[in-house]
Design a protein around this nucleic acid. Sequence first.
DNA 1: TGCAATTTAAATGTCAGACTTTTAAATGTC
DNA 2: GACATTTAAAAGTCTGACATTTAAATTGCA
Lengths: 253, 253
Amino acid sequence: MKIDPDSTTGLSVQIAAAIRNSIVEGALIVGERLPSEAELAEQFDVSRSTVREALKRLAAQSLIKTQRGAFGGAFVNRMSYADATKQLVTTSTLLLSMNEVSFDTACEARFALEKACAPMAAKRRKPKQLKVMRAEIERQSVANLSDESFCTSDVAFHLALIDGAQNPVLSYQLSGSIEAMQPLMNMITFTARSRAEIVAIHTDILNAVEAFDGAKVSDALERLEAYTVKLAHTVMSEKDKARAKNGPSIRQL
Amino acid sequence: MKIDPDSTTGLSVQIAAAIRNSIVEGALIVGERLPSEAELAEQFDVSRSTVREALKRLAAQSLIKTQRGAFGGAFVNRMSYADATKQLVTTSTLLLSMNEVSFDTACEARFALEKACAPMAAKRRKPKQLKVMRAEIERQSVANLSDESFCTSDVAFHLALIDGAQNPVLSYQLSGSIEAMQPLMNMITFTARSRAEIVAIHTDILNAVEAFDGAKVSDALERLEAYTVKLAHTVMSEKDKARAKNGPSIRQL
DNA sequence: TGCAATTTAAATGTCAGACTTTTAAATGTC
DNA sequence: GACATTTAAAAGTCTGACATTTAAATTGCA
């Protein structure tokens, strides 16, 4: 673990990279305690603040966790599915919101992945997933639900569906593309009619999953994708019309 | 953007969260310059070092980039696909290496996603992707190639395949699951025979993609998955035997 | 002896202030 | 006008101090 004080890259960046490598390569294993900040400062021949900045970088990536007090310090963190999902959602959300990704492209990716998951989910689903899906459909049917709550429930429904595949890696990967789309979905105002349509398709999915019928799930997902895209286009073209009347917008989809 | 000095969570964590929210919610837009560290310190009523630690956390997530010198400062970063992919690969790699995820589970997830992508790739692929795939097959056929180089080329081949779908979001998502598996694949020693088998399947994929035949691509991917799993099991059971002779191992797959 | 309260020491967290380096704009010079 | 110099703003780094937290060690008491 050596760093170059004359490099143009900052010292704290180099130190973070050095420690990150040690973790990825297995030289530092889960739960292991790193040397104290003071010791690291001496080892790398930098000040304690520089070491701290490096450690904060690693903490932001969930690579380490710090604990205060005697016998505290920085410990290599076991990356949990929850940690990883949080990271993935933040990254994906920003990627989508900052890169003029069209709604259609994001939607296509999301449903392509979900459809890949559907047959497995239909085959392996447990009562637990059916229960969650049913509960979310109930919630979505409530009349006075806000658009945002509707979207949140929608996300929960689909996460339950993919959980049915009983593959945590798949759940992790998919949760990224599904949750990251929520800000985009939140832009849509759901009329009572469109909600009824979506709930109907969700019900089809639930029934198909319950019947272990993967093909039917895929079919329903395809319909849902088509309907979602159509809905988004309608909403967006209406907003376009409003924009044309009210002058240039501040931000576009 | 307010923080609570009496909270148990650290000040730099709170400040990072506050700024992150401003970015995610759109209050700070891409390219915008944050106040200088000194100004932020005054605004939040903390020391400059605390502000710096907060900024380093955000920089580690590619949310901001800092520039030195006059008219420098911290700027909201446009999350690029490259940035996002790097984050995703780091996270996924650690998730897989630290959580006793079975090879089969990771492999299943990876191929499920890739199969989802295959029909689209077959339909839309451009000469560019064919060219890359062909070049990588060439590389994989070289006799004296190291196992690691073989794996690297394997990754490049599959990335080219999914690029064929012409959906950058999909490419981003998939690159995570494919690249993150590389450390697991690197544990396998590829015999000349197994390499020949893999190259043969890759060639089938290339030909099917060239012929716009999505079904054939999916079929080939299924064979590749089965073969990969079989190969991994063979290697692992042999390592198990070696372990049984040589005593307990330090790390298991 | 056994347990509860207290002390202690080792860490991280925070602060304050100084100095270094980088960088672009402003200024000066030919 | 083109080029060199100065300047000022900002991040990067260093030093040293103090605050806070925490678990272990010690002490005190029954």
